[in-house]
Design a protein around this nucleic acid. Structure first.
Lengths: 228, 228
DNA sequence: ACAAAAGTGTTGATCATACACCCATGA
DNA sequence: TCATGGGTGTATGATCAACACTTTTGT
């Protein structure tokens, strides 16, 4: 059955970009310059080109629309309800990405459209089924964080244990015990203690740690359980 | 940016159907009747039609090619490498399905092609990148089984605890302790004890249990951890 | 009576949780 | 010297892993 017997749905990629600052878990949205949903906020994304790899497409669109590149990106789910785009049947392969907000300030570069960070808990109405995609990405982030050290992607290279705990608390949406949290994370032996401390704080400065990717990969290979 | 500015990749769905019998974890394959890979074994699947929902498409192809319907089916991952199909760029949304083999005998109905069950550990060379899709489905099955009671989909409605344990052992590929396994599963309270026992065995007959879907959903709602 | 699998409890080790105070620093 | 968050240990209960024998049934 050759493909040209039937009309094809169109194919896009969309990307849920998460960032974290002192206040919130944030999401990067772009303001649409074109119909449909012109002027509405939406996920960055666009049509996949013939011959283009899906992840490459997601990364290309992300860079064109928000300036972001070389960031953590993982496939989320493919959404294909025939009516999700009012024009025609458009299937979208959704990705989610994590960035360190301190290196990607509140308003990113933009190619054509306006881009801005929104608190996840205070989002505008979104175009298409993008709210659904966002909810699904939020759920994935939560569950993935429980068994995989992806949180580091949201932090600067060097961070304090309190920053890390706060990240877990805000993403998992539950309070954690300080002592137990530290014990557990240090026991994993995937954090490297640096000899630096945080700067410019009006109290005792905390030690800075760094994620030890190599140690993590070795432990993962060895089949160790790295749940938090 | 309207979709017709660029040529579109084609879109298919493919389905990895797992079954379990006394011997093996098995996979349902079809023999391709058309080029490319004519005569080679492949996953059941085919082109998504304009206006057709993805999951519906996967189910339709599955029924057309293997006769299977109304089975557990879940989206796996979307594979889109531009060269995965030698003809042109074809993106496939892969699903995986679980069936109770005792109700779907070794050779299924077929629409156009030949369909047959193969032991997962002794597969023929497959068309396209279907080996990769299969490996990915196997991994998903393993990890999903650890925290979700999907194993019941592979068993008859009523089953013994030994059957269930054997299922876990074969999918997780590790030996489990009989007493601990029983304790753990019974404590979850998602198994309903029937008043029947297995028939025609040359030894003491085991009690039959049934998966209590309602109890499971309630516990899941309540946020209980149902890891094995 | 024998072969085959069913069924059943206890113990020790490990892990998770709960919890409160002193310390270092800058203002 | 005060305010702020940094950093630390222990005790209790819960959970997990290891382990072997008796029971039931069919042949």
């Amino acid at each position: 059955m050759p493909s040209y017997e039937y009309a094809r749905p169109a194919l896009t990629t969309d990307c849920v970009v998460f960032g974290l600052d002192e206040e919130d878990l944030k999401v990067l949205l772009i303001k649409r310059g074109l119909t449909p949903f012109k002027g509405k906020w939406a996920l960055p994304g666009g049509f996949v080109r013939e011959g283009e790899d899906l992840e490459k497409s997601a990364r290309r669109e992300l860079q064109e629309e928000t300036g972001l590149k070389d960031i953590f990106l993982e496939q989320l789910y493919t959404f294909g309800h025939p009516k999700r785009d009012p024009r025609e049947h458009v299937v979208t392969v959704a990705y989610y990405a994590l960035v360190n907000l301190s290196e990607h300030p509140p308003t990113a570069d933009t190619d054509a459209d306006e881009a801005a960070w929104f608190p996840f808990d205070d989002l505008p109405k979104l175009a298409f089924d993008h709210s659904e995609i966002l909810a699904s990405a939020r759920e994935r982030l939560r569950s993935k964080l429980r068994y995989s050290p992806i949180g580091f992607e949201l932090l600067p290279e060097k961070f304090t244990l309190t920053q890390l705990q706060s990240l877990y608390e805000r993403i998992l949406d539950e309070q954690l015990d300080k002592r137990n949290f530290r014990k557990k994370l240090l026991k994993l032996e995937i954090l490297e203690e640096t000899d630096e401390i945080e700067q410019d704080v009006a109290h005792r400065a905390a030690r800075l740690y760094r994620f030890d990717r190599k140690a993590y990969l070795e432990k993962q290979e060895a089949g160790l359980n790295l749940e938090i």
